[in-house]
Computed example of a mutant assay.
Amino acid sequence: MSLDVVDLRSFYAAPLGRIAHRYVARTLREWWPNTTGMAVIGLGYAVPYLGQFRDEAVRVIGLMPAEQGVLHWPGTDVTSTALVEPASLPLPDGCIDRLVVVHLLEVAEHPREVLDEIWRVLAPGGRMIVVAPNRRGWWARVDTTPFGFGQPFSKSQLNTLLRDTLFSPERFGEALYVPPLRFRSVWRLAAMFEACGCWLGLPGAGLHVVEASKQLYRPIPLRKTAKRGIPKLDPVLAPVAGRLARRSQPSGRDGSIARRTGSIERQQR
């Protein structure tokens, strides 16, 4: 099930969306403290988390899936967003240094194809951060937020998915220990929920935040080749001298002519 860009924009304008933005953006900034001179791309609905990189990165662009829709960002005359097909990005190979994936993998029909395309456009040594709902968390169990749609992941599932698509997971983090409830009292305690959950390492956070790097070389997959039929070789019992003698005799029409000539000569004698 795809998410609509209008619903996503409304969510991040609401109190729960601002809480989600605060703690996810803080993790992104801690892991990427300096992106000076880099090209930073957001894939999915990642524009709420890209603004903190605009003052230092050489290029910041938001790429949004066609099924989701696109909006104008960052609010100036020139837009920095584009509508794309996630499994076929309009980018050359190895042109991106940092890439943020939010609101995409859980609703993607073929997440492996999306990650293969991300691997292609990332530069050697480039890094990616994936934000995905935790299947053990509260946020994946309610549909009042965008993180309740699609297929949530466990930590081991994300790790396997990234390794199968030739990424090296570097760091795993979690965010949103606060319950996704629409009560002001819960919103005021969000900082306490987050601090206690991170300090105690409690299970049940709403989101997985994973950083992975691109492996420079892709191994070539082995393909099964068709077995070629080998002719059966029967043993030859004739002596070597006999075989050589037979090989030295002419064959075919020339051989028959030679035999006839020999018999005529013997008769004349």
Rank of each mutant, 00 (worst) to 15 (best):
Q151V: 11
P231D: 00
A245F: 13
M1R: 06
V210A: 00
A140V: 00
T145Y: 06
I220Q: 15
Y45V: 09
W32V: 13
S256T: 11
M192P: 01
E211Y: 10
G201K: 01
K155F: 04
I230F: 09
I257F: 05
L222P: 09
E30V: 03
W199Y: 04
D97G: 04
Q151K: 10
D7W: 07
D93E: 14
P92K: 08
A123Y: 07
V240N: 12
S263H: 15
V40E: 11
C196F: 15
T81N: 06
Q249A: 12
L244P: 10
A46H: 03
V209H: 05
C95L: 03
Q267M: 12
R9E: 15
A241N: 13
P15L: 02
A132V: 09
P231W: 04
Y45H: 14
W32D: 08
P250I: 13
G125L: 06
G51C: 08
R22K: 14
L8G: 02
P235Q: 07
L166Y: 09
V210P: 02
L3C: 07
A82Q: 12
F147W: 06
Q68L: 08
P90G: 03
R29D: 14
Q151H: 11
R54F: 05
C95F: 05
G262W: 15
V236T: 05
T165M: 10
V210D: 00
R26C: 07
K227V: 15
L43S: 01
L104Q: 00
L16I: 09
G44I: 06
R188M: 12
T165R: 00
P15K: 00
V78E: 12
A132H: 06
P169E: 04
G262N: 14
R260D: 13
L200H: 00
R243T: 11
P152I: 06
R136E: 09
V186E: 03
T35Y: 08
A195H: 12
S248Y: 12
R246F: 11
L105K: 01
T81L: 06
K155N: 06
